[in-house]
Amino acid sequence: MDQRGHGRSTRVPADTSRRAFVADVVHVIDAADLGVADLVGHSMGAHTAMLVAAAHPGLVGRLVLLECDAGGGTTEEAKAVGDYFRSWAVPYATRELAHRDLGDSALCRAWGADLEERADGFYPRFDAEVMARTLSGVMVPCWAEWESVTAPTLVVYAEHGMFTVEQKGRFVERGRNVSRVDLADASHDAHLDAFDPWIDVLTRFIVR
């Protein structure tokens, strides 16, 4: 699913709280009549999936968290992300110009490929202000929620991800029913730059 404020979901939602993101996932599970679902998330999406499993344990069978933590952060970190997105020279006249401006990492290529074409050029499928507000909620520590999760959980970290060795260890240790896999030569966006290893560990856990 495209989370609110992302992709083809509502671009500028009125509510960007963590509670709202959780409610959206629950709505999708109910609307699709899934009963019990396996949730897979990356980064902020993993944070959302974790909170769903904490608040609605009966809806979650298994949980897969790629590059996730419960320790929170600072408002400065959220602001820095917003500032970065505000720095994009949109609209871009062509995708080629966007690729040149954004860079050649796997993440930047994905951003460029997903730009929305409008009459005056290409735009991201998200709003910088919304992203900054949303991330502010992620910066609040949620150890109690994480420690309450009972669903079997696979935590996946990237060798060159955004979390320290200490953060990774603390998160796994404080989980209840957790296994961990580390992806070599991968960045925070391992689902893009270590796709095959990521799909391999994900599939083996879900199938098991």
Rank of each mutant, 00 (worst) to 15 (best):
R95S: 03
A93H: 08
V40W: 03
G82M: 09
G5Q: 14
V81K: 08
D15V: 14
A54L: 07
C68K: 02
A14W: 11
P91M: 12
V130H: 14
G58R: 10
L97N: 06
T94N: 08
A54R: 00
E96F: 02
G112T: 15
F21H: 15
G35A: 12
T48S: 01
D33S: 13
A98L: 08
V40D: 01
G41C: 05
P91Q: 07
A46H: 00
D15P: 07
D38H: 13
S105K: 02
V12T: 15
M50S: 15
D104V: 04
A113H: 12
F85T: 05
A46G: 13
D104Q: 03
P91V: 07
V52I: 09
T10F: 00
G73E: 08
A55D: 15
T74W: 12
G103W: 06
E76Y: 11
T16S: 13
A106M: 07
M44T: 10
G73S: 13
E77G: 11
G58M: 09
D30Y: 02
Y84E: 12
D30P: 00
A20Y: 03
A89I: 04
R11D: 11
P124S: 09
G35R: 10
V81T: 15
G73D: 13
T75W: 09
L63I: 04
A128D: 07
H42P: 10
L63A: 00
A32G: 03
C108T: 11
V25G: 03
V28I: 15
T94P: 06
A23T: 14
A20H: 08
G112E: 08
E116I: 06
R8K: 15
V28R: 09
R95F: 07
A113P: 00
P124E: 10
K79N: 03
D101Q: 02
D15Q: 12
Y123G: 07
P91L: 10
